[in-house]
């Protein structure tokens, strides 16, 4: 685009008179001249800014990779929550598991435990 700067695109698409053409050419010339006439301090400062900007490492992630970054973060978050949930569940479920082990390891018949509510009702009567 910068290469097209002096092809007068403004004149091609807008209805301008010959007088405007002269005016625009003069304006461009004066603006170009103002750039060429910038003082040494300004040019030096612009140069330093450019060197600092270009030497600064730019983002290595392409735009198309950004959603994947978000996806990875979301997956890590879900995994962390899931692991935390399971740890908590395991801690609270430990006594119940121990009770089950005692029943299974005991000598009583399992049918007794299966019909436990029936025997309890029978005893109340």
């Amino acid at each position: 685009m910068s290469d097209n700067r002096h092809e007068q695109p403004a004149l091609a698409q807008d209805a301008v008179t010959e007088r405007d053409t002269v005016l625009l050419a003069a304006v461009r010339q004066q603006l170009d001249h103002s750039c060429a006439a910038l003082d040494g301090h300004t040019l030096s400062r612009l140069h330093s800014m450019r060197v600092a900007a270009v030497s600064r490492p730019h983002s290595r992630l392409s735009a198309w990779m950004m959603p994947f970054g978000g996806l990875v973060t979301a997956c890590a978050l879900v995994m962390a929550v899931n692991v935390g949930w399971n740890i908590r569940k395991a801690e609270t479920g430990a006594p119940a598991a121990m009770e089950d082990m005692e029943i299974l390891a005991g000598n009583e018949a399992l049918d007794l435990y299966a019909d436990y509510e029936f025997y309890q009702w029978l005893a109340q009567d």
Binding site: M1, A53, V54
Partner: peptide, 24 residues
């Protein structure tokens, strides 16, 4: 100066890998 510097830094940081035609 501040405005131009910000624009330069942002261009390099975000769009440093773009093609020449897209830079302007």
């Amino acid at each position: 100066f501040d405005i131009v510097q910000d624009a330069m830094l942002k261009l390099v940081e975000k769009y440093g890998n773009k093609a020449e035609a897209d830079l302007a």
